[in-house]
């Protein structure tokens, strides 16, 4: 599904990713853990196609296709979804307008017909109920006045509706209390499927109690420095990142 080789990326001349190698096979959930400043969020942005980063070396293959030069909107239509650490509040853009624009744009890009309004409404209603996203939230401008938990649930709602092949969850647990974390995790787990891969980026192990990964990678100073099973997350929780920060420096 996702194959990253020797990826180097910088911003404003500062190198943040320094040779990432990562394979995420179809149907697997991989976690990336690492200390602050290790480049985790940069990796998520670079995978989603955010402008402003210079990819100085390496490649990103998605379904075997090089996407380093592909614009963000085309990557989304190919099936890459980024759940934002800080979902944007966009005053004046109605949540439903946004959801419909996104779903239909992706369908159009894939050569599919646009959704009818009743079909669209039905899909939103079904997914929203599961995630405890209320009709009142859906009537508001996108994320405006949403609590941290509401914003994250809205991200997972978008993921459910857009049905990506690869979901990148960037610090989805940040700002969530235990109850909100459970709702969000249940929502993510419901979307696990043999055709869908996930890359779960997190600083803390607690999210991985709920979304249990197949593989855990440790990122430090712009590289993957260690990979292992779910037990690696527990080890990090116990010992912290001190070893890796030291090793990378």
């Amino acid at each position: 599904m996702l194959s990253i080789k020797n990826l180097h990326a910088s911003i404003d001349g500062r190198e943040i990713l320094r040779g990432i190698d990562l394979e995420v096979p179809t149907g697997q959930v991989h976690a990336i853990m690492g200390p602050n400043g290790s480049g985790k969020s940069t990796l998520s942005y670079v995978l989603a196609g955010r402008e402003g980063y210079d990819i100085t070396d390496g490649s990103i293959l998605f379904d075997g296709e090089e996407i380093v030069e592909t614009p963000a909107e085309e990557r989304a239509a190919k099936g890459i979804f980024l759940a934002f650490q800080y979902p944007l509040e966009i005053p004046g853009v109605a949540t439903m307008t946004f959801l419909k624009a996104a779903m239909n744009a992706q369908r159009k890009a894939r050569g599919e017909t646009e959704l009818t309004t009743p079909d669209f409404m039905r899909r939103v209603k079904t997914s929203a109920e599961k995630l405890n996203v209320t009709q009142e939230m859906l009537r508001r401008p996108l994320n405006v006045g949403f609590s941290g938990g509401e914003k994250k649930r809205n991200e997972i709602l978008q993921m459910a509706l857009l049905e990506p092949k690869l979901a990148i969850l960037d610090e989805t647990d940040s700002g969530l209390d235990i109850d909100a974390l459970r709702v969000v995790s249940d929502g993510v787990n419901a979307l696990r499927s043999p055709d869908r891969s996930m890359l779960v980026i997190t600083h803390y192990q607690r999210l991985l109690d709920h979304i249990v990964p197949d593989v855990v990678h440790v990122m430090a100073a712009g590289r993957i420095v260690r990979s292992g099973g779910p037990e690696l997350a527990l080890e990090l929780e116990a010992n912290g990142y001190a070893d890796y920060v030291g090793a990378a420096a």
């Binding site: 989603a48 614009p71 963000a72 909107e73 005053p91 946004f98 996104a102 744009a105 890009a109």
Partner: peptide, 25 residues
Amino acid sequence: EDMLFYLLARGIPRAEAETLLVTAF
């Protein structure tokens, strides 16, 4: 740019994303 990227990352083409943001403005 942050708002624009959010819309692009959902697959909304640039011209449409800009239209949404300017209309909202």
